[in-house]
Computed example of a mutant assay.
Amino acid sequence: MQRLSYIVAYPIIWGISILPFPLLYILSDCIYVLVYHIIGYRKKVVRANMRRALPHLTKEELHKTEKKFYHHFCDSFLEMVKTLNMSQKEVAERFVVTNPEALHQMESEGKSAALLTGHYANYEWILGMSQHLTTHKGFGIYKPMKNIYFDRLVRRIRGKLNSELIGVKDVIPTMRKNLREGKHGFYGFVTDQSPMLGSAIHWGKFFGQEVPVQVGGEMLSKKMGLNIAFSKIEKVKRGYYQCTFLRVEGDVSKVPNFEVTDNFMHMLEQQIIKEPAYYLWTHKRFKHCREAAVNESQC
């Protein structure tokens, strides 16, 4: 069944990936009508998240932000598919790093670095910058897909951009192996994901809510001697993004535990408040909170 679904879907994926960007966004507008107006994909989750995080917005402003988010959501999905047939030049033109010197400085120190990012703008393209800006290889931490054929496809796409996906269970072995072999890289951690309650070791504030926070990027950096930088990704216009790396200065091992992660979450929150439509509101970021955890119920 997995193979059959892949065989059926792959020609469609390939066909989308070879579309020029103007046609890609016409298709995206059509998919928006289907996803938002007809299917109503995760509308309840999106609205609940926005009401919780953006209480300062009026009902009309929330509705406008919701529609703008779904347009961006459809664009982002097709942009990810488009990566299958994007050239190095296209990636460099559409995902611009504003301060490549920050990457070069970390490279010159002969150390790997953790790049903390969130589900904002086009976070999928961040590792593509290792293809043309750095000598370090890019590594993305992800949860492998259940369909092994689609999982291989996603890995192949990343490999095309001089980056590699690492399953969450393989992160530490891969880092140790690279250290032994003297190989350096940039490890991308999507830090705003909601961890399972049983594995949560830190609770932080996000939009005033006390929620469990992923701290793997920070704690592994301290353990493995990595540099850390925040990845501030912004949408310039449709199909174009820019990223600014904000390095955590000094010896991160001496920074109090969880302070780096809390500072990143605060930065991400301020960015979302400024332009909320580009955050991934479909994932249940507030599904756990401190009060609910005590009562073993959902927030």
Rank of each mutant, 00 (worst) to 15 (best):
Leu197Gln: 04
Glu101His: 05
Gln298Cys: 09
Leu246Thr: 06
Glu181Met: 10
Lys183Thr: 03
Ser87Glu: 03
Lys222Asp: 06
Asn295Trp: 04
Lys177Ala: 15
Gln105Tyr: 10
Phe139Ala: 07
Glu66Ala: 04
Val154Pro: 03
Tyr149Gly: 03
Thr83Phe: 02
Tyr142Gln: 00
Ala292Pro: 06
Phe206Lys: 00
His71Cys: 08
Val8His: 01
Cys243Gln: 05
Cys30Asp: 08
His184Cys: 05
Leu62Tyr: 15
His72Val: 02
Gly216Met: 06
Glu218Thr: 15
Ile26Ala: 10
Asn178Ser: 09
Arg47Val: 07
Arg285Gly: 09
Phe69Ala: 10
Val35Met: 12
Glu218Ser: 04
Leu24Tyr: 14
Pro173Ile: 14
Lys59His: 14
Val154Met: 15
Ser112Asp: 11
Ile172Ser: 14
Pro144Asp: 10
Pro256Trp: 05
Arg290Asp: 01
Lys82Asp: 03
Glu107Tyr: 07
Leu127Ser: 13
Asn263Val: 03
Arg176His: 09
Asp262Gly: 00
Ile31Tyr: 06
Met106Cys: 08
Asp170Val: 06
Cys74Pro: 13
His202Glu: 02
Val45Asn: 07
Phe139Cys: 07
Ser108Arg: 11
Gln214Arg: 10
Phe77Asn: 13
Lys284Asn: 09
Val211Ile: 15
Lys284Gly: 01
Arg176Ile: 15
Lys237Thr: 10
Phe95Cys: 02
Leu161Ser: 08
Gly204Arg: 00
Leu179Lys: 11
Gln2Asn: 05
Asn178Val: 06
Tyr187Ala: 01
Lys68Arg: 06
Ile201Thr: 13
Pro55Tyr: 12
Asn122Gly: 12
Gly217Thr: 05
Phe69His: 11
Leu161His: 15
Cys30Trp: 11
Phe77Ile: 14
Ile148Tyr: 10
Tyr10Thr: 03
Glu61Gln: 13
Ala113Thr: 04
Glu60Ser: 13
Gly140Met: 14
Phe186Arg: 04
Ile16Met: 02
Ala229Gln: 04
Glu107His: 05
Lys232Tyr: 09
Phe207Gly: 02
Val211Thr: 04
Cys243Thr: 13
Ile273Lys: 12
Lys137Phe: 07
Val154Tyr: 14
Val215Trp: 02
Asn257Arg: 08
Leu57Gln: 12
Asp29Pro: 14
Arg158Cys: 06
Leu34Glu: 05
Lys183Glu: 13
Tyr278Ala: 00
Met86Pro: 03
Leu246Tyr: 05
Lys64Asn: 05
Ile201Gln: 12
Thr174Cys: 02
His202Trp: 05
His288Cys: 02
Arg158Ser: 11
Arg285Trp: 05
Ile166Ser: 03
Asp192Met: 04
Lys137His: 14
Val236Ser: 02
Phe206Ser: 00
Leu246Trp: 12
Asp75Ser: 11
Phe139Asn: 09
His72Gly: 14
Leu268Glu: 11
Lys205Pro: 01
Leu268Val: 10
Val154Glu: 09
Phe286Tyr: 10
Ser130Thr: 15
Gly40Met: 10
Arg51Tyr: 06
Asp251Asn: 15
Arg52Asp: 06
Pro212Thr: 01
Ala293Ser: 08
Ile172Thr: 15
Ser108Asp: 05
Asn257His: 08
Ala121Asn: 15
Ala102Cys: 08
Glu275Gly: 03
Glu60Leu: 06
Ser5Gln: 01
Phe73Ala: 10
Val248Glu: 10
Ala121Val: 12
Pro195Gln: 00
Asp192Arg: 04
Arg94Lys: 13
Gly159Thr: 07
Ala113Ile: 01
Gln271Ile: 03
Cys299Ile: 02
Arg180Ser: 13
